[in-house]
């Protein structure tokens, strides 16, 4: 018998496989249904019909969509996800090149949003019904409703343009080519605004759900029992109430990851961050079918994996979920 957690992980991984396949098929055909002809963009202004046909043939665009799909799947099995129509580089290479910048951005935003969100949620659950609680709830509703592109631009206006405290965009200073610790500092400096923009939304979600789950947990008998044992308020709050509410928090973080990735597209454009989001955006404009398919596939895969990890995290937190 395998340990319950390992068994659960394997089962989730197996269940994810058909999902990944469905996502690939869906995005593949969806892109081809969209208006716009990559051949026309590649061939430049006023191409001759012959040249256009040549370009189409070169990229297999003259084949029926299902044929293209079968060919794509066949190649994908061997690890070849096609070549970017625009940059002529393998799709996989292009994506991997941009991936670390996005991981850095979204990962940092998620960690910061989780920490602050949990603290705010717990603080307002503890004082449920008080003025501080109402204030936190109202503030998080506002934060939740603000669109990312707008927050980003406001932050740029304030901190980069007016106050000139922080850089308005990019990942490193254009003129300095720092190495070592100075490089880390430089990147961190450039991260402040985009991370803040991305974190606001996630933070408010985490705070709201954590608050609700903790208010419910604090009302349970086991909290009273813990108090009757002589546990301090802080101990009751974290060891008992939060330990139960954490399942909700982890689920929200997992589910919201997709939103964060989508938000990253906007934030990367606003802050000229050289990550996957920008790559997607450019690929859409260039009708770079191969790169778009690869990019959709890759990001769906990341979302699926993150959700799997959050499911397993929940099972680790709550023994009743393991089976």
């Amino acid at each position: 018998m395998l340990p319950a957690l390992l068994r659960l992980s394997l089962r989730r991984a197996l269940l994810a496989l058909p999902l990944v396949l469905a996502v690939i098929a869906f995005t593949f055909f969806l892109i081809r249904l969209a208006p716009g002809d990559p051949a026309a963009i590649l061939a430049g202004e006023a191409p001759t019909p012959e040249f256009l046909a040549q370009v189409r043939a070169e990229y297999g665009l003259d084949q029926p969509a299902w044929r293209q799909f079968v060919a794509f799947l066949g190649k994908a099995m061997t690890g070849d996800f096609g070549t970017s129509i625009y940059s002529k580089q393998p799709v996989f290479t292009v994506i991997l090149e941009r991936f670390p910048a996005t991981v850095l951005l979204t990962g940092t935003a998620m960690v910061i949003a989780s920490l602050i969100g949990i603290l705010l949620g717990a603080a307002s659950a503890r004082r449920a019904g008080s003025r501080a609680d109402a204030l936190i709830s109202a503030a998080s509703l506002v934060g939740y409703s603000l669109p990312g592109f707008w927050v980003g631009q406001l932050l740029i206006l304030l901190f980069a343009v007016s106050l000139n405290w922080l850089p308005a965009g990019g990942m490193v200073a254009a003129r300095g080519s720092y190495t070592g610790w100075r490089h880390v500092e430089d990147v961190a400096f450039h991260m402040v605004l985009p991370v803040a923009t991305l974190a606001v939304f996630l933070l408010t979600m985490i705070a709201r759900f954590t608050r609700a789950a903790m208010v419910e947990a604090l009302d349970q008998d086991y909290v009273l029992v813990a108090e009757a044992k002589g546990a301090s308020r802080r101990r009751v709050l974290w060891n008992h109430a939060f330990r139960n509410a954490a399942v909700t928090t982890v689920t929200v973080i997992g589910l919201e990851f997709g939103m964060v990735l989508a938000g990253a597209v906007v934030v990367e454009i606003v802050f000229s961050w050289p990550g996957l989001g920008r790559l997607f955006y450019d690929a859409i404009h260039r009708r770079d079918f191969a790169l778009l398919t690869g990019a959709f596939m890759f990001s769906s895969l990341v979302v699926i994996v993150v959700n799997m990890v959050s499911d397993i995290g929940c099972a680790m937190l709550d023994p009743r979920i393991r089976r």
């Binding site: 008998d221 086991y222 044992k229 008992h240």
Partner: peptide
């Protein structure tokens, strides 16, 4: 707090909900 659970302790009505389910 020093008294609770040490000098005076309490058993509650519902054993199904009196334990923290995740510990």
């Amino acid at each position: 707090r020093d008294m609770r659970g040490a000098l005076v302790s309490m058993v509650f009505q519902d054993p199904m909900t009196s334990f923290n389910p995740v510990l």
